[in-house]
Design a protein around this nucleic acid. Structure first.
Lengths: 239, 239
DNA sequence: AGAAATGATGCGGGATCACGCAAGACGAAC
DNA sequence: GTTCGTCTTGCGTGATCCCGCATCATTTCT
């Protein structure tokens, strides 16, 4: 068995290397990449079937890399190893995992024991392993209770990118009014409203405020926004 | 000499410990804290004069912690050790460092050699050491060439938090029109404008777009926004 | 099948925003 | 002292946003 490590931080990389050696004696070769681009290339060259992937890397993040890898060979098993359980990351991963693929999501704060267990579960048993904390996040994403559903999430991204209602309507093939409807759903879900109804001074610009609270609730984050921006500029060009 | 490490990742913490041992034989005691709260407390209890501080930690970030520590004893020497050189962080640090205090800013990606050198320079020689990359960022912040100055930065924060023009005016003691003036300066600096002047469809909501590009340029980030939000809610209560 | 829920769309109005124009305030340069 | 540049503020306008009210269409429940 060969394993490919894609991880920025040399410290974490060597920690992973040791964990793999300890937990997977059947692994006889470890390859390492220190960013997403190299990771993709090595995965292709070595036809890697077992990958451990960091999510936030400077040059190319783990979600992008995983997507292209899975596009080429959907049965690749990938263990995501991340510092955070931001909803934005969880959504990002959930969006790209192919049907039936084995993958895992373990936090860097997990104990060594848990990491080793996850390694065996995924790479030997082909089971999906998802950290408890991440799991909680996932439930919240899917169930709508207090969570933001896909439609609302989509429009959240659009306003976070700074689009006007009209542009969103064009992009999503909706009428102007529908866009505004969805915006109101979103505002409600995020608990955003013009405070101090007493006077006439709405303190918050709802649109901007919604983005702010989404950001603070980690519904969106830097990497997610960057990805969305890339999609947007693509759309802008063809339109 | 005693040194206090404030860092949430155990891996990085032990790496630091070894680096300190290797570079500073005159250090006879190392204390460790795994978040900002504990860090503040330990700094107080041990009257720490030499601290190595991570910037992004979950429970309380390094800037907050450093601020309260410096408030109590401004001659404390603090080496910030961070993954990123986001302008938001650099600004955050610059804002709180007391006059004449010795401090440093070293990236985690720096070589071990560089870290050790910085350790000696700061803790022995009381010099300020700032990573080259960070330095570049700092210049850009201060010089206004293409960079955003303090006034623009301030209003950027305000719209990122989701305030209305009126609320900003109240908070900053300005007229409505002045706020809008500053907004326009900001838009210009960020290169934000209604694309496609041909038709009449402004694709971007300038206010939201400005926040988006600022975010993508790392003028603002999660920690910074959270800090500002805390200040904001304080102001909202007393007003 | 009929009823109820959900979502898309149109109309309209009040509030906010973006921004040109212009007048006064203040300090720096000459 | 005059002139210039920068900053603040007011007024006004057109575009955009927020959102209540109302009409269909599609789904879902009974």
């Amino acid at each position: 068995m060969k394993i490919l490590l894609v991880e920025d931080d040399p410290l974490h990389r060597s920690y992973l290397r040791e964990a793999v050696n300890a937990a997977l004696p059947e692994c006889h070769a470890i390859f390492e990449a220190d960013n997403g681009i190299v990771g993709e290339r090595m995965a292709r060259d070595h036809k890697s079937a077992h990958i451990i992937m960091d999510l936030q890397m400077q040059t190319r993040n783990g979600i992008e890399a995983a997507r292209t890898i899975w596009k080429e060979r959907p049965d690749t098993r990938i263990l995501f190893w991340s510092n955070y359980s931001d909803e934005a990351y969880v959504r990002g991963v959930a969006r790209i995992v192919p049907d039936g693929a084995a993958f895992g999501y373990v936090l860097k704060s997990a104990s060594e024991e848990r990491l080793k267990l996850a390694l065996r579960s995924i790479f030997i048993e082909a089971q999906c392993v998802i950290d408890r904390e991440v799991r909680g996040m996932q439930q919240k994403s899917l169930g709508q209770a207090k969570g933001v559903n896909d439609i609302e999430y989509e429009i959240l991204i659009d306003i976070a990118l700074g689009l006007t209602d009209r542009a969103i309507a064009a992009r999503r093939n909706l009428s102007l009014r529908s866009v505004q409807n969805r915006l109101q759903q979103l505002y409600e879900k995020l608990g955003v409203y013009q405070t101090s109804q007493d006077g006439h001074d709405g303190r918050f610009n709802l649109r901007a405020r919604a983005v702010a609270v989404a950001f603070m609730r980690k519904l969106i984050n830097y990497n997610g926004l960057e990805r969305s921006e890339a999609e947007l500029s693509e759309w802008l060009n063809t339109n």
